[in-house]
């Protein structure tokens, strides 16, 4: 009973229970009621259509980033630079919008160009980490981390420099774009069916690339044994670069949607930490694309559900982050324990 899928599922539930248990202890230790906190988070995320729409707004970039990371993880790369790739996607999209600000072209075309521009920007930024890795021998973790800092600095520079608001520059970002540059949204809700569609399409494509294509199989071969893959005739470093490009493009799309459908301008923290959160989701689902949607949705719900906590319970909204992090840790620990247990059994 403990073997196979069911067993694995039972262990995941144990991990979930342990994570909630530890967070509950933390809450009790600061004198808050865990039950109230969880209830408020639940109501705050799925208590109304409007709130659930907010969850989806958070779900879209998270799913896009996770989809991209599934490719880099498959090829054996730790693409920590994904955060910066989101930022460069957002910057590129902003640049395209600014370029066409007075244009008479149909807005739909401009929005499409802007999103494609964002994907291109993210991909190019990712290729920097890839080139550093393949030709410079710089581990992608260090390269990516460095590039993340550069991307943040670049955003601040643009907002306070060349792209500053007329009059006085401000942390609230660049001048908002006209409504015509926004991805069409559902009436009265902030979610755009277009962005949701793009994200779902992305994860489906990534699933099929990894499951059913020669490209995906080669990516996995490179990730599992670089040297043997080379001897089998796979152009290994090219495939590493391709996976950087794909992940960068998807992260760039996430950044583009943050600009085109959520903030309608460039703001300093445009990536909102979705890159790091995506890394956690990818680890939590053990790099299986099939689980990306439910887990990303759950994480997004935690994010949105915790927003009301400061007002309702005087708790910081970072509680969702604590819960997410604890959950990842416990899933990894429980999985390790399960494997050890199975070996003995």
């Amino acid at each position: 009973m403990l073997k196979g899928r069911l067993g694995s599922f039972i262990f995941q539930l144990i991990a979930l229970a342990l994570a909630f248990g530890v967070v509950s202890l933390i809450l009790i230790s600061v004198g808050a009621s865990p039950l109230d906190a969880y209830k408020n988070m639940f109501v705050g995320s799925v208590g109304s259509v409007r709130k659930f729409a907010e969850v989806l707004v958070s779900f879209v970039p998270l799913l896009l980033v996770t989809a991209g990371l599934l490719i880099t993880f498959s090829s054996g790369l730790w693409n920590i630079g994904v955060e910066g790739q989101i930022v460069l996607g957002a910057i590129s999209t902003t640049w395209v919008f600014r370029y066409f600000i007075d244009s008479t072209l149909p807005p739909a075309l401009i929005i499409s160009l802007a999103i494609l521009g964002g994907m291109l920007g993210g991909a190019l930024w990712a290729s920097l980490a890839g080139i550093l890795k393949t030709f410079g021998g710089v581990n992608e973790i260090f390269g990516g981390l460095g590039l993340n800092f550069v991307s943040t600095a670049l955003t601040i520079y643009l907002i306070f420099g060349p792209w500053k608001r007329p009059g006085v520059a401000s942390m609230s970002g660049t001048v908002p774009f006209p409504d015509s540059f926004s991805l069409p949204q559902l009436p009265d809700l902030r979610i755009s069916m277009w962005s949701l569609g793009i994200a779902l399409l992305a994860i489906v494509i990534i699933y099929f690339i990894l499951q059913g294509t020669y490209f995906g199989l080669k990516i996995k071969a490179v990730g599992k044994n670089f040297r043997a893959a080379y001897l089998l005739g796979i152009p290994t470093w090219q495939y590493s670069l391709y996976s950087f490009l794909i992940c960068g493009a998807l992260a760039g799309a996430a950044g583009a949607i943050q600009v085109a459908a959520v903030y309608h301008r460039l703001i300093p923290s445009i990536s909102s930490g979705y890159g790091y959160l995506g890394l956690m989701v990818a680890m939590l689902i053990n790099y299986q694309a099939i689980w990306a949607v439910p887990v990303a949705l759950f994480f997004a719900a935690l994010n949105i559900g915790s927003i009301q906590l400061p007002i309702l319970m005087k708790l910081d909204s970072s509680l969702s982050g604590v819960l997410q992090g604890t959950l990842v840790l416990f899933v990894l620990i429980v999985e390790g324990a399960r494997q050890k247990f199975m070996k003995k059994a």
């Binding site: 020669y214 996995k220 043997a228 089998l232 005739g233």
Partner: peptide, 26 residues
């Protein structure tokens, strides 16, 4: 296992890769 074969992939996967396949779908 270090240089010749790819741990984690099946025999089928290996034979497919060694054929240097063209096309997109497996």
């Amino acid at each position: 296992l270090e240089e010749g074969l790819i741990p984690g992939l099946s025999l089928t996967d290996h034979f497919i890769l060694a054929e240097q396949p063209k096309g997109i779908f497996i």
